[in-house]
Nucleic acid binder design. Structure first.
Length: 568
DNA sequence: GCCGTTTTCGGCCCGACTGTTTTCAGTCG
């Protein structure tokens, strides 16, 4: 694990322990540690190389936390963390994961009933002991009991991969939008910010006349219809719905989209101007300064519009204040798709002819057909098959003169960084994607080296789905990302941003870490295996946006001639 | 614990909901 992640994890644990110590999740100390943890996690530099003064220079890290970090880096321990850990063992801290149990309740349970773990808590609920405690009652006891039984299904930290969540959310938006009296609907929350895992779906609805007493019946009807529309989805994920008035669309969207940290920073900015910001509007006493659109509110706060994908309080507010937001890529900017399979690959589902027709139909200027290569035993193309496909492509080029068709290959990076075929054969391809498809468990050093070796191969123009992760299923390989970035720049090899919702790879968290590296190039491609998957490009674009990737860094936004000149 | 177009001391985002209350504490987002 990266030193930054280790330090952030230690500070995150300190947050939990301090919540218990202070009896509040909102104590200033707790929030300070939390802020520091986030800052360290998002820091592009390696935290272990920073001295005390450099640590203090980080926004959110002061004297005390800087010393704790140095102590941790030098000794592997933090005295205050060790002391609190002894006082609050992991078993006890785990009780905070139960919905309804916060720091106060946890302490009360221990002081009055001697409860030290979730198991003991379950027993106390069964024995109806909780209802005797001050501030608790039978209802709370029952709620906690139910929450424990569903833990894992409904725990505070349960998250779902974005793919299935998006499908559910898009269905909800469609169903709710069709309800009589609903004039606008959108999903918000971390889904709109395009995080790759989601805890709940937040849906914002505008219902005509929701605010007028005369239309109370109609408003109630909308509420009922909305409830019915989300009932099924609630079987699989938490769904929060909020119905608002039309003139609150902007402030409610902002509030509901978050992130929490972004909202807090915006509210502080409002306070500095003598205003107050909440979900109902940006207010000057009783006067509404702005509320109808998010654009209005940002403008009133002297900020450029901040796209949802950037709203994490990772510097976007400062950038917006200075007019320095990154020039993000849009779906319409994408001119080519550089990672495409067909049934020539064993796992392809649409014919080559159909794939090319679909690409042309989408108005793309260029595509690279990149079937699996021979070392992928089940799916890969033999040399003879490569030659056959090339002949077919020649014929297709005649049929689609507006579409430049490159013949590429998706090569397999072996454990030592070698790829399929031989140098002479590789030279026959127009384009080379190289990807990891095996040996996911090698140590980071070895993984990093195999990627770098592949980059040094002249036949390799881009590394496909860098980490090989499958969201919710496979974690992805360990690697030294900074070394990979250095090699990418040095060898002029792009990094692919894979658009498939199960991958979204390079992960946005890594892209953010690379945001100051304008020497790194990217492709955004679909890795399509059938004609429907070309539409996935929008997810790759959103992932790139979340990663602060600049439009100019994405080579397949470039005109064909520029792209070909770069690709050599 | 952090920080400064209001501050080196005195503030620190805002509101809903629930359940326990007789005016509010705790939890959650």
């Amino acid at each position: 694990m990266r030193a930054n992640d280790q330090v952030a994890a230690a500070l995150a644990k300190l947050v939990l322990l301090t919540q218990l110590e202070d009896g509040s999740a909102q104590s200033f100390r707790t929030r300070a540690y939390d802020r520091a943890a986030n800052a360290i996690r998002a820091l592009p530099e390696d935290v272990s190389t920073l001295d005390l003064a450099e640590l203090r220079a980080i926004d959110g890290v002061g004297d005390s936390t800087a010393k704790k970090i140095r102590e941790y880096l030098e000794t592997g321990h933090m005295k205050s963390l060790d002391e609190l850990s002894a006082k609050y063992p992991d078993e006890f801290v785990a009780m905070l994961r139960v919905p309804g149990v916060g720091p106060r309740t946890a302490i009360t349970l221990r002081d009055k009933l001697g409860i030290e773990s979730i198991d003991q808590l379950r027993e106390a609920v069964a024995a109806e002991q909780l209802r005797e405690l001050p501030g608790l009652g039978a209802k709370t006891e029952e709620k906690i009991g139910t929450a424990i039984d569903k833990l894992g299904l409904a725990g505070k930290d349960r998250r779902m991969p974005i793919g299935p969540t998006l499908r559910i959310a898009n269905g909800l938006v469609e169903d709710i939008g069709a309800i009589d009296g609903v004039s606008a609907v959108r999903y918000c929350g971390s889904l709109r910010r395009f995080r790759d895992s989601i805890a709940d779906i937040d849906v914002l609805v505008v219902a005509d006349g929701a605010d007028e007493a005369v239309d109370a019946d109609e408003a109630a009807g909308v509420d009922e219809a909305v409830d019915a529309a989300v009932a099924d989805a609630r079987e699989s994920i938490q769904v929060d719905v909020r119905v608002v008035e039309p003139d609150q669309w902007g402030s409610a969207s902002l509030y509901f989209t978050g992130s929490k940290e972004h909202n807090i920073a915006l509210r502080q900015r409002a306070l500095a101007r003598g205003w107050m910001l909440n979900e109902y509007g940006l207010m000057d006493e009783d006067t509404v300064v702005a509320s109808a659109t998010e654009e209005d509110i940002y403008r009133a706060l002297d900020l450029d519009f901040i796209p949802p994908e950037l709203r994490e309080d990772l510097g976007e507010i400062e950038a917006a204040a200075e007019g320095n937001l990154p020039d993000l890529v849009d779906v319409d900017d994408i001119r080519g798709d550089l990672h495409v399979h067909s049934t020539w690959s064993g796992d392809g589902r649409s014919s080559l002819e159909d794939m090319v027709a679909a690409a042309a139909g989408r108005g793309l200027d260029y595509i690279a057909i990149t079937e699996h290569a021979e070392d992928l035993s089940i799916n890969g193309l033999s040399r003879d098959q490569v030659a056959e496909e090339r002949a077919v492509l020649d014929e297709l080029r005649g049929r689609y003169p507006e579409l430049a068709i490159l013949h590429g290959s998706e090569l397999n990076i072996d454990p030592d960084g070698g790829v399929d075929y031989d140098a002479a054969f590789l030279a026959g391809f127009d384009w080379g994607v190289a990807s990891v498809h095996s040996h996911f468990d090698l140590p980071a050093e070895k993984q990093t080296q195999r990627i770098i070796t592949a980059m040094e191969n002249p036949a390799v123009s881009v590394i496909g789905h860098l980490t090989g992760r499958k969201l919710g299923r496979r974690p992805g390989i360990e690697l030294d990302f900074d070394a990979v970035l250095d090699a990418a720049a040095a060898t002029n090899t792009a990094l692919e941003i894979n658009s498939h919702l199960a991958r979204l790879d390079v992960p946005a968290d890594l892209l953010i870490r690379a945001r100051d590296r304008d020497d790194v190039r990217y492709t955004i491609s679909t890795d399509s295996h059938d004609v429907t998957e070309f539409a996935n490009i929008r997810w790759g674009v959103q992932n790139a946006r979340r990663g602060w990737v600049q439009r100019s860094q994405v080579v397949n936004t470039w005109p064909l001639a520029d792209f070909l000149a770069w690709a050599g």
